[in-house]
């Protein structure tokens, strides 16, 4: 593995026609072997950032190095050490999985034999051995993503860029891909820069997370650090009788500030943390309010996003059905 396969970004900016500042002065650094999650909503500038780092788009301002090579000046060197699976898994629907491996391996200078063995090995690893001889046009969305990942790994890159690698994958394929990314980072020491719109993905997979919105990095840190910054646990309760909702709210208000909740329930941020739970239950009993459901929520990355931008990243999912 390369001595230093980290990523350094300083004040990088990318403008597009019409004055769009897709990436607007981002600084970040990714340590060798680290998994960095770049989290943000649609249009935040994630893909633009990736395209600059993989040398396909020159930055307007600022500077970035990948494995010590400048992305603007040392394109060819950067490209030899990186692998990338871009947002649109651009595959040729008339070629088979094997033919893709052969083409890309050949262009990377692998010998015919290497192409064959390494291709078969990678296809096996992403679970595509059976489909390797079939045309990609007949692959499912998840199969295409997995082939794309295998292609990105073909020339043993030490830095891997994945742009929304799990969008459109079913839960199984998603966790399989997570496991593979983990393995690459832990066992092979590959640095991984991955973008995502999923909180859970950033939370579970990334060692460190950068949250981007409107081209600017609004928060950065390990998931734990970020959530700790929010602090308080929130409590959400659903009354058995919907008419009790008002009374429930009044009772809960004694324990903390109101928080976002689904229409049928009431939530507050517990001022003194989870330890207050027993008091809350006693108070509800005293006021004879029957609750159907009572939940404690740890702060999530969405709360971090909400705090920084005033918007929720997973807009629709705030209204979770209470589990009864």
């Amino acid at each position: 593995m390369a001595r230093d396969n980290g990523i350094e970004v300083e004040g990088i900016v990318r403008l597009f026609g019409g004055g769009i500042r897709a990436v607007d002065g981002v600084d970040l650094s990714v340590a060798p072997g680290e998994i960095y999650g770049f989290l943000g909503p649609n249009g935040a500038g994630k893909s633009t950032m990736v395209l600059m780092l993989v040398t396909l788009l020159p930055p307007t301002e600022g500077r970035a190095t990948v494995a010590g090579f400048d992305v603007a000046k040392q394109g060819p060197q950067v490209r030899t050490v990186i692998g990338a699976a871009l947002q649109e898994a651009a595959l040729d629907s008339f070629l088979t999985g094997n033919e893709h491996m052969d083409l890309q391996g050949g262009l990377h200078g692998l010998s015919r034999n290497e192409r064959r063995t390494r291709g078969a090995e990678l296809l096996e690893r992403v679970g595509l051995s059976d489909a390797a001889g079939r045309k990609v046009g007949g692959y499912s969305g998840g199969m295409k993503r997995r082939l794309d990942l295998a292609l990105a790994l073909l020339h043993r890159p030490s830095v891997l860029f994945l742009d929304e690698p799990t969008t459109g994958l079913d839960p199984q394929s998603r966790s399989a891909l997570w496991a593979e990314v983990e393995r690459l980072s832990r066992e092979d020491g590959v640095t991984v820069f991955l973008t995502t719109q999923y909180l859970e993905e950033a939370d579970v997979l990334a060692d460190r997370v950068g949250i981007i919105d409107h081209g600017k990095l609004v928060a950065e840190g390990t998931p734990t650090e970020l959530k700790a910054g929010i602090g308080q646990v929130s409590l959400e309760a659903t009354p058995v009788n919907p008419n009790d909702r008002e009374r429930l709210a009044a009772t809960l208000a004694r324990f903390g500030e109101p928080a976002a909740a689904s229409p049928k329930s009431v939530a507050v941020r517990l001022a003194a943390g989870a330890a207050q739970l027993a008091d809350v239950v006693r108070a509800l009993d005293a006021d004879s309010i029957e609750v159907a459901d009572l939940q404690l929520h740890q702060p999530s990355l969405d709360d971090v996003f909400l705090q920084q931008t005033g918007r929720s990243l997973e807009g629709e999912e705030v209204d979770k059905e209470p589990a009864s």
């Binding site: 396909l56 060819p76 490209r79 871009l86 040729d92 890309q104 262009l107 990377h108």
Partner: peptide, 16 residues
Amino acid sequence: SDIQTGFTDRLALTPA
């Protein structure tokens, strides 16, 4: 259509 789908980007990431 290669340009549109991004296949040329894929090739552009190789030493070709």
